[in-house]
Amino acid sequence: MKKVTGIGGLFFKCKDPKAINEWYKFHLGFDTTPYGASFEWREAGDCKKKGLTQWNPFPENTKYFAPSTKDFMINYRVDDLERLVEELRKENVTIVDKIETFAYGKFVHILDLEGNKIQLWEPKDQ
């Protein structure tokens, strides 16, 4: 089973997400929204298939990364989230929450061996 297919996003804490969005927009040309920026790309094996990588600054006091104490969280794209979560449970990986489904895909959070929170995402576009 192929587990991770790519990086779906990079999330990080900052003092002022609005100012960070504006800085990246002005200096680096990011097409930012209040939620960050989306980078669209095409699958190598099927150029008709689109993918997104999300870039999101969060307020420095966000609890979204908890229980991790790190200032960042990486989102990895996966093919079959439910099957992967079953495998991870068997491997005694800490599953932080239940799989949630939204219009743009399924999500769950896990912890790595150092307690870094990781978001796994099965995009709806797959």
Rank of each mutant, 00 (worst) to 15 (best):
D97Q: 04
Q54S: 12
K3R: 09
G105W: 06
Y76P: 09
E60H: 06
A37H: 14
F65S: 01
L84Q: 04
E86V: 14
F65I: 00
E122T: 08
I99F: 13
E43N: 08
I99Q: 11
G45I: 08
W41L: 09
Y64D: 03
V4D: 01
C47F: 11
K15R: 13
G105Q: 01
Y24R: 02
K90P: 02
V4E: 00
N75Y: 03
F102W: 12
L10I: 15
K13Q: 03
P34E: 13
T62A: 03
W23D: 02
D79N: 13
K98W: 00
E22C: 04
G9F: 05
Y24N: 00
I95L: 08
D79E: 14
S68P: 01
V4C: 13
W23G: 01
M73K: 11
T53N: 01
L113T: 10
T33E: 03
T32E: 09
L52P: 02
K2M: 05
I99L: 15
W23I: 05
H109R: 15
I20A: 03
Q126P: 00
F11P: 02
A19D: 06
D80E: 14
W55S: 08
Y104I: 14
E122V: 07
N56F: 01
I118Y: 06
F72N: 04
Q126S: 03
K18L: 11
R77H: 12
P123A: 04
I20Y: 01
E60M: 00
K15Y: 04
D125V: 15
G51H: 15
T33W: 00
D97C: 04
G29W: 12
E91P: 03
K48C: 05
F30Y: 15
R83N: 15
T101Y: 06
K13F: 00
V93D: 01
F11Q: 02
T62E: 01
K25M: 14
P67Y: 02
G45S: 15
H109K: 14
G105L: 05
D80F: 09
S68N: 05
Q119S: 11
W41F: 15
T101D: 10
P34T: 13
R77I: 07
P59G: 04
E60W: 01
A103Y: 13
L88N: 01
K3G: 02
L88C: 07
I95R: 08
F107D: 03
L111W: 13
T69S: 12
D71A: 13
L10K: 02
D31A: 15
P34A: 09
E40P: 00
N75K: 03
K63I: 06
G51I: 12
I95T: 11
W41Q: 05
Y76E: 06
Q126F: 11
T33K: 00
C14L: 13
Q126D: 03
G9K: 06
H109W: 07
K117C: 07
K18W: 02
E87C: 04
